[in-house]
Design a protein around this nucleic acid. Structure first.
Lengths: 225, 225
DNA sequence: AATTGCATTCCTGTATACAATTATACAAGG
DNA sequence: CCTTGTATAATTGTATACAGGAATGCAATT
């Protein structure tokens, strides 16, 4: 599978707006004006327009014809739903990874786990951001290792989406440690080519994350405003 | 939730190209030139560009920077993967639908089923296209009824994607009849508010479709060129 | 004071113009 | 005959220009 790199403005603008939404610079229901953004990024409206259209399809932006583009709100229920869906798919992903994972990917998983454990054992305390990034990386490698571009695509989208409402990343230290231990178990199962075990552990892993989320008021019927 | 209608060219161009890909007018790896398409549709390159960028995100088109846009190939493995994923999610959808479905949606499901059964019992033989459309409609209503825009979005995307490779729509009459009976069972379970049953039936329904697919050479490791 | 009508201004939607990149054709050299 | 270099054409990427809705402000009216 060949990969092509995109040096175009269009792509960079897309990424930039995306980040700014995820970072919270643009908040829910903020209006995204083509001219304003274009001026900020030093480009014309054209690339901005394209980026906004794409972001709409990604679900991050809502476009009302002839009126403008607005940041799409992500409710707590949305996030809950995503985790619920993930709890049905991460297991499938792990199962497939058992068959398709490469040595390089196994090494990469091992590395992120080592780094995670290192972070958690630091005297000076751990960086929440770092640990979150490593968590994301672990799952991203696993998605890739599933050997299914379809499954990988879906799960990656979900990850990005959840990342947006970073409210959800408020995890306790206890949960972080437990999460890493669960990752280690999953990796072990994959190494031992135990598909059944890997699947079960991966699904349970998400369910455990959800239990933590529930404490923070996330659940199925949370309407929120 | 308000809905806004889009009378713009951009939207129409998007739909048109989309259809042409799904209809098979543009085939796998065909190059989609902005000028050519624009001339055909009587618009400038701008709306065409936007449409192509969106289609890329939908997975129907692959854009190589500075080179062009190409119709994305969908392998048999992709389709297999999608059904595999659906077999894990349709059940969840049915389960949620038990809680959220409205009377109107129940009626709509009933109607599609009646029409399907009518089609199958016609003396003159049934229209494959009609039955396929009704099948799609049944599932679409169910997705909507889940009350989860996230789940609905994912499953709808999958449906569109599979529809593209219409190879998969080659179903036997026997399978068509069985499929409709399974739909009826699912509807009954939902009406009786039996979430457990609805979930199980919906997942099994997809697995049955997959069994039929397998006969046609679809499976996990089908590389196909 | 609230509401309607209208003009102005702003913003989006589309077309066109120009720049940058890539593909193509063909000739020169090995 | 195949490779390489170069000029030309074709195509994409971006900026700008113009047309058409939508929002805003203000005055006139009730």
């Amino acid at each position: 599978m060949e990969e092509y790199q995109d040096h175009s403005l269009s792509g960079r603008v897309f990424q930039k707006i995306r980040e700014d939404i995820l970072n919270g610079k643009y908040k829910e229901n903020d209006e995204l004006r083509e001219n304003t953004i274009g001026r900020e990024l030093g480009v014309s409206r054209t690339p901005v327009r394209e980026a906004l259209r794409q972001l709409e399809l990604e679900g991050l932006v809502t476009i009302i014809p002839n009126r403008g583009a607005y940041v799409t709100g992500i409710s707590r229920k949305d996030i809950w739903d995503i985790y619920m869906i993930r709890s049905h798919l991460e297991g499938l992903c792990a199962r497939w990874a058992v068959q398709h994972i490469t040595e390089e990917q196994l090494d990469a998983l091992e590395e992120t786990l080592m780094l995670s454990e290192f972070q958690m054992n630091k005297e000076s305390g751990f960086s929440v951001q770092q640990v979150a990034a490593l968590d994301g990386r672990f799952h991203a490698i696993l998605y890739e290792a599933s050997g299914s571009r379809i499954l990988s695509h879906v799960l990656t989208d979900f990850h990005n989406y959840v990342q947006m409402a970073r409210k959800s990343s408020i995890v306790s230290e206890e949960r972080a440690r437990k999460s890493i231990r669960e990752h280690r178990q999953i990796l072990r199962a994959i190494k031992e080519r135990d598909a059944e075990m890997a699947e079960q552990l991966a699904n349970e892993h998400i369910l455990h994350v959800m239990q933590n989320l529930k404490k923070q008021g996330y659940r199925a019927e949370t309407a929120e405003k």
